[in-house]
Each structure stands twice: as structure tokens, then as C-alpha cells.
Amino acid sequence: MLHFPFHVVLWAVVVALLVACALVMELVCGILPFLERPVEKAAVRALDPFPARPRWWMTWGELRHEEDPAFHRGRVEKLLRKQRSDRRTTDVAAHLYRCLGVRGLLEIAGPHGWTLDAQAAVRPHEKVRLSRLVPAATRS
């Protein structure tokens, strides 16, 4: 209960700063359009340290099914089934597999054609990046 108000205030400050910077950058990029892409990349890098959903946050449904592996297995399978066939990487957030662990996630992902991405850093408390090979027929 103590962390939630802090998190809300933190996001309110971040949004206010983002809006103020966006107004200034809109004017600057209107005059100098070649700066648009670097400004966008800088904004993404600046916002990365601030999580949209803290690790401790749980929805009511997640709280009710905290010790139910079948619930989390269904969520992971639903996420992996919804991925387009041409997509080569995907991130699975920790709150989706919290009861299964990384090993359980990989057991579910294997039949869907996903494996652990060897090039990405594994941060099991935040997210796990999965990758798969795209068949040559679907590449363009």
C-alpha cells in the first residue's frame, strides 16, 4: 500500500515532464525535421528505467490465482498462440509466468516453436525474450 501512491506520483511527474518536453520538441522538430528520429530514440531510452507495471503489482485475478499453475500456463499459451507467424522475437513479462518459472515457460514455448533468445540477457524477474526461426517461405 505504501508503494502504490509513490508509483502513481512518479508516473504523474514523468508524464508532466514528457508533455513539457514533447511541446518543446514538437516546435524544434517542426523546424528541423531531421531531428525527429534521434529525439524519439532518446525519449525511449529515457523512459526505459521507469516500469509501467512494477514487479510487485498484481491484478485481482492474478492474486486469486497466485498458486494456480494452470491459470498462468493458459495465459502464456494464449500469448504465444496470438503471435504472428512471421514474428521472430517476443518478450514474455514475468507476471504472466510467475507461478511457472522460466523452466515452465520454456516447456510451454517449445511446442509453439519458441526458444530462449541466446543474444538477449535473461532477467527472469522482469521478462524473458523468446525467439524462433522463421521459415523461408514466410520471409519477405
Rank of each mutant, 00 (worst) to 15 (best):
V24Y: 13
E126R: 06
S140H: 06
L130S: 03
E62M: 07
P54T: 01
H72M: 02
L63A: 13
W114G: 00
A136D: 08
R53I: 06
D86E: 10
H112W: 09
T89S: 11
H7P: 02
W56G: 03
V13M: 11
K41D: 14
V92S: 04
D117G: 04
P49I: 02
T90D: 09
P33M: 10
R55K: 08
C99K: 12
T89C: 05
P5W: 05
P54F: 01
H112G: 01
A93V: 05
A93S: 08
A118K: 13
F4C: 12
L133H: 11
P135M: 14
P49L: 00
M1P: 14
P49S: 00
H3A: 15
V8N: 11
E26R: 11
E107Y: 04
P5E: 12
R81Q: 07
P124M: 00
A20F: 15
L35G: 01
L47C: 05
L80Q: 02
R73S: 12
M58W: 10
E36V: 11
L18D: 09
R73H: 09
P51Q: 00
V76Q: 08
A43I: 15
R132I: 08
G30Y: 04
G101C: 12
T115V: 08
Y97E: 01
R81F: 03
G61R: 07
L79Y: 06
W56Y: 07
C99T: 13
V28P: 04
C21V: 11
G61I: 04
L106M: 05
A121G: 03
P111M: 01
D117R: 04
R75L: 04
V128Y: 00
E126V: 02
A20R: 13
A94M: 07
A120E: 14
M58I: 09
V28W: 10
T115R: 08
G113A: 06
E40S: 14
K82L: 03
W57D: 07
A118M: 05
T115S: 09
H7D: 13
M58N: 06
R53T: 10
P69H: 00
E26F: 15
F4T: 15
V128Q: 01
A70M: 01
A52K: 03
M1I: 10
L96W: 06
V13Y: 06
L17I: 13
W11E: 10
W11C: 12
S85V: 03
L105V: 03
L18R: 08
D86V: 07
A136F: 00
I31E: 03
A109S: 04
P135D: 15
V128F: 00
L63W: 14
V122Q: 13
L32G: 00
L23M: 15
V24E: 09
Q119K: 13
R45D: 15
A93E: 08
L10I: 08
R129N: 03
V102D: 00
K78D: 15
A42T: 14
A22R: 14
R53C: 04
I108R: 02
D91H: 11
V92N: 02
H112N: 03
L27Q: 12
V24H: 12
T138Y: 10
F4N: 14
E62N: 08
